[in-house]
């Protein structure tokens, strides 16, 4: 399976994701510059965390107009896995692949710690290796991770099983303690926590590994069908 990791000016988790694929699940991976216009030949695209364009204007807003964006939208439309982590989640909401927005943490502080998440939907290609309602420990590091959407959107998220992860406690003011959501088709996932920073018990938790293993397993199942 071949993964693309998109690199924007100001991305800073791109190499973590690169090594999550290369060493975590031993698959093919390439860093792709934001000025590229094609993702042909890739089976999945990963949008890393960081501070693209210094978070100028709004986090993810300027990256949302980069030359690579139409290719990401095309991958999503083709049903291929698109995963946005932290700033990547912010970018996915800005370009309309996911509903809602990420606003400033309600307590006005940057949070950098390992938090407990509950897997709300383990029936997606990103989460199938987790058990239903499993609680996992994954680091967060964000100042603007407060997920906001209106009530109607929240109802739709619930009805369509689009909520993938919830925080076990209210860490930033997010609506319904949402930590990660998918699109209706379940092939686009955005989440604030960083699974790529939780691949080895040596660094505190290896609970993130199953996400990458899920993506790989579901891809191989599709290929072998």
């Amino acid at each position: 399976m071949k993964f693309a990791v998109v690199v924007f000016p100001g991305s800073n988790c791109d190499k973590d994701l690169y090594f999550a694929i290369k060493d975590g699940i031993n698959e093919e991976v390439e860093l792709v510059n934001f000025q590229e216009t094609s993702l042909s030949g890739f089976d999945a695209v990963l949008i890393p965390g960081g501070f693209s364009y210094g978070d100028y204007l709004r986090s993810g807003a300027i990256a949302g107009h980069a030359p690579i964006i139409p290719a990401i939208k095309q991958m999503a439309a083709e049903g291929k896995p698109v995963l946005g982590i932290c700033n990547g989640f912010q970018i996915l909401t800005e370009i309309g692949l996911l509903p809602g927005a990420l606003i400033k943490n309600n307590h006005n502080r940057f949070i950098c710690e390992t938090v407990s998440l509950q897997v709300i939907n383990n029936q997606t290609q990103f989460t199938s290796e987790y058990s239903a309602n499993q609680v996992i420990d994954i680091p967060v590091a964000h100042g603007e991770g407060n997920y906001y959407c209106d009530e109607q959107t929240l109802n739709e998220l619930k009805q369509n099983d689009q909520i993938a992860f919830k925080y076990q406690s209210d860490i930033n003011g997010s609506v319904d303690q949402i930590a990660g959501i998918t699109n209706k088709e379940k092939n686009v996932l955005g989440m604030m926590p960083h699974p790529e920073r939780a691949l080895e018990t040596l660094v505190g938790s290896d609970d993130g590994l199953k996400m990458f293993q899920s993506i790989l397993k579901n891809h191989m199942d599709r290929v072998n069908q």
Partner: peptide
């Protein structure tokens, strides 16, 4: 609409 403001918020 497309850049300066995010209609969600």
């Amino acid at each position: 609409d497309d850049l300066l403001a995010n209609p969600n918020m």
